[in-house]
């Protein structure tokens, strides 16, 4: 569990804008992700979180720095094409828009796309597709066409398409951003189950603080650097800092923090509604 799965050292990435200026996105970023962990990555727009995800998958190449994934230095100049695809197989990626990731006109054909590319045998593909459908709870939709599904269902199909490649790690690049609340819950439940039951390392890039609160570890990126890193309770206690870099805190923390500012003696690191309610009830207990 404690082995480092992804190691990022002194990572820099910049792109050239229309005027020819270099725009730095990531600056000397250092990061370690343990195998089997469920990590949320937060940051406002332009903080470099999506860029980081694309660098780990080598969709983009870093300007400088080193990334090691599962013991393989993917930034090495001697990286062969087979190693590149091995890395892409190990680190799956689910994107924001569910519509733009589905290739085939039938759900199960789409899930088969990844393993087909890997050259897996027909019988094995069939088995993987059925298993992946079961894992995301979409078995009954196997023969449907993607446009008949809801956003949350489409996103689950996209996840199944990644699972069928049997990755060790899945990066969710704002995969819940375009979904309605029920779709978001569907996808979040699937993500957590993948981590808890199948031990897949998860990097969940998101805007939603309550989703981040469900993870084991929260990394806050700001201006291409790691601003905060730790357990959700620790990270969300820094209300002022988070607000100064344009991020919200979960509603529970916000309520408790407002109370604290008003002079109430209260702890603010309660992330679930129940814990928050208990904390407030404690006050009434003291007053009695």
């Amino acid at each position: 569990m404690s082995d480092t799965f992804i190691k990022v050292e002194k990572l820099n990435f910049s792109y050239t804008d229309d005027d020819g200026h270099d725009v730095p996105v990531l600056r000397d970023l250092d990061l370690e992700i343990e195998g089997g962990s469920l990590v949320a990555v937060l940051g406002h727009n332009g903080s470099g979180k999506s860029t980081l995800a694309k660098l780990i998958n080598l969709i983009l190449t870093p300007t400088s720095g080193k990334i090691t994934v599962d013991g393989l230095d993917i930034t090495s100049s001697e990286l062969t094409e087979d190693q590149l695809f091995e890395n892409r197989k190990n680190v799956g990626m689910v994107f924001q828009n569910p519509d733009n990731q589905l290739v085939a006109t039938i759900v199960e054909e789409d899930i088969a796309f990844g393993p087909e590319n890997l050259g897996v045998s027909s019988d094995e593909i069939r088995k993987r597709v059925d298993d992946a459908l079961k894992t995301v709870g979409m078995t009954e939709f196997a023969r449907h066409s993607p446009h008949q599904l809801s956003g949350g269902q489409k996103q689950r199909v996209a996840i199944a398409g990644i699972i069928a490649m049997m990755p060790k790690c899945i990066i969710f690049d704002e995969s819940t951003a375009m979904l309605d609340p029920s779709g978001r819950r569907e996808v979040m439940d699937t993500i957590i189950r993948l981590n808890r039951e199948y031990g897949i390392t998860i990097l969940h890039i998101t805007h939603y603080m309550n989703e981040a609160a469900m993870c084991d570890r929260v990394i806050v990126l700001n201006d291409g650097k790691v601003e905060l890193d730790g357990k959700p309770t620790e990270v969300f206690s820094n209300v002022k800092l988070l607000e100064s870099i344009g991020l919200d805190v979960p509603q529970t923390v916000e309520v408790l923090n407002e109370l604290k500012i008003e002079g109430v003696n209260i702890e603010i690191d309660k992330l679930s509604v129940d814990e928050c309610a208990d904390e407030i009830m404690k006050l009434f207990g003291e007053n009695k």
């Binding site: 998958n57 969709i59 695809f85 892409r88 197989k89 799956g92 990626m93 994107f95 733009n100 990731q101 290739v103 088969a112 796309f113 990844g114 393993p115 087909e116 590319n117 890997l118 050259g119 897996v120 045998s121 027909s122 593909i125 996209a158 398409g161 990644i162 490649m165």
Partner: peptide, 15 residues
């Protein structure tokens, strides 16, 4: 998304 799913053309692809 296709690149992420290891698509590299028809060679070596199974069905």
């Amino acid at each position: 998304a296709m690149e992420c799913r290891c698509y590299r053309g028809g060679d070596g692809r199974t069905r």
